[in-house]
Design a binder for these strands. Structure first.
Length: 480
DNA sequence: ATGTAC
């Protein structure tokens, strides 16, 4: 089935309203990206989302859009508090998957002599891989409930990191209104031993070098300069978030029937935001989101510890400070101005990053003048980007941008391309060390499996959704 | 993404 597309300009495409659509679709992409998309069902998914009750503004898609469960990955949709719905498919299985970025007082030359030892130590100290389990962290069931309610603040209280870190996390590292009683026993069990683990797939831990600065004034405010060592952590809520999504998909399928919501695709199952089912999903989702915030906070402490071990330097010399931590799979209550009126909306971001502009009260004070940091990982063989949010994003996308490069090859296809090659050696030739839980994980994540993230962020820049600040090159990659 | 199917 082909989806009608009208080109608006060189980076915007409209899917006109027709049939059951309640609003139009708006896709941010260049002509080449659109050409590859039309063979996929991702645009059809943008159109399907536009049929959901209470949607406000267009059904949006970022330039890294690809096919996902119900909603496309790279999709943004906002819903009215009274008329709208909440959908687990609009958040995704990995609730509060996100990225955090640490800066350091080190240069790439400082760590090059010990890079292999640093990679080994990080790989040992941060469990990675499918089903990876905790190191030495023991959490009782009662305490796990506190994790789900307090997020990163729980981790800091337990000695993982500093209070200062909390100021540099989206939502302060804790979504309010989380209710651990709404999370199934099974989800609790799955999460129990997974706090402080990386997981698999595109999740990673990277030691990086700032390769290029594009905006010196903003980079200065974020504390970034060329040649500096940074660390990125990309992971989410592991098996716990997966189980919460799975549990609620079943309930939402029933709820959709109960409330008479017509679905073009069962995977879009949802419930009114005013219904018990809707409220309960949001409270369970907030718990899983807080688990993910705590997860990234604990890993951060182990990263700091690893650097201290290998370099023999103290925290004051390393200065591994948290620049920012952003979610890219979440539904949140936010206030947005629509047609000149401030409205409280439930914004679904699935594979999309919040990108609030300069001056926004939710942006940490330190960055208030330049905008919220936006962290966009690329693939392990190339680079990642740091952006800041802009007024354009607030006006057009409910303060959102892309979240990454976006796959172009399926995992299976990537493995075929990698077959017979020595990917580790190829990366080493480019100065990138990799430590991974398995060979298959590396093969599935080869550069060729992804779009060039430089092209993705360039669409974001041209569309005025964000400002490009810096490009980071991987030096050592820890993969599940 | 995911104890890659209970």
């Amino acid at each position: 089935m082909t989806v009608k597309l009208q080109q608006i300009d060189d980076c915007r495409w409209r899917i006109p309203r027709e049939g059951a659509m309640r609003t139009e679709g708006l896709v941010f992409a260049d002509a080449r990206m659109i050409a590859t998309l039309q063979e996929e069902q991702a645009l059809e998914q943008v159109r399907n989302v536009a049929t959901l009750p209470g949607i406000v503004g267009p059904s949006l898609a970022m330039p890294d859009i690809h096919w996902g469960y119900g909603f496309p990955i790279g999709g943004v949709a906002a819903f009215d508090a009274e008329e709208g719905v909440v959908s687990p498919g609009g958040v995704g299985y990995d609730i509060n998957c996100g990225v955090r970025l640490l800066r350091s007082a080190l240069t790439a030359n400082d760590i090059k002599p010990v890079l292999a030892k640093l990679a080994d130590t990080l790989f040992r100290n941060v469990p990675a891989g499918v089903g990876s389990e905790r190191r030495d962290l023991k959490v009782s069931l009662a305490e796990q409930r506190r994790v789900l309610e307090r997020g990163a603040a729980w981790a800091v209280a337990r000695g993982y990191g500093e209070t200062e870190d909390l100021r540099h996390i989206e939502a302060g590292g804790m979504l309010p209104d989380a209710d651990s009683e709404l999370i199934s026993e099974r989800a609790m069990e799955r999460g129990r031993a997974q706090l402080g683990t990386l997981g698999s797939g595109n999740h990673f831990l990277e030691v990086q070098e700032v390769e290029e600065i594009f905006d010196a004034a903003v980079a200065d405010v974020l504390g970034l300069c060329t040649g500096q060592v940074t660390v990125s952590i990309h992971t989410g809520s592991r098996g716990l978030g997966y189980q919460v999504c799975d549990d609620f998909l079943k309930r939402m399928l029933q709820a959709s029937r109960k409330y008479g919501i017509e679905l073009p695709d069962r995977q879009l199952c949802c419930a009114p935001l005013t219904s018990p089912e809707g409220r309960e999903y949001l409270a369970a989702m907030a718990g899983a989101a807080n688990f993910a915030f705590a997860n990234r906070q604990i890993i951060t402490a182990w990263v700091r510890e690893s650097f201290e071990q290998v370099l023999g330097l103290g925290p004051a010399q390393l200065r591994l400070s948290l620049i920012y931590d952003v979610c890219h799979n979440i539904a949140k209550w936010e206030t947005h101005t629509v047609d000149g009126r401030a409205r409280r909306l439930c914004v679904h971001r699935k594979g999309a990053t919040r990108a609030f502009p300069p001056g926004h009260p939710e942006t940490p004070e330190a960055y208030r003048a330049v905008g919220q940091p936006v962290l966009i990982p690329g693939d392990m063989g190339r680079y990642s980007y740091v952006l800041v949010g802009s007024a354009g994003a607030m006006a057009e996308t409910f303060g959102s941008t892309c979240h990454g490069a976006g796959r172009v090859l399926s995992r299976h296809a990537a493995k075929k391309v990698a077959h017979g090659r020595r990917i580790e050696a190829e990366l080493a030739e480019r100065g990138i060390l990799i430590r991974a839980a398995g060979r298959a994980a590396v093969a599935e994540e080869i550069s060729e499996a992804y779009k060039d993230v430089a092209e993705v962020v360039d669409v974001v820049r041209r569309a005025g959704l964000g400002k490009i600040v810096a490009r980071l090159r991987p030096l050592a990659v820890i993969k599940g």
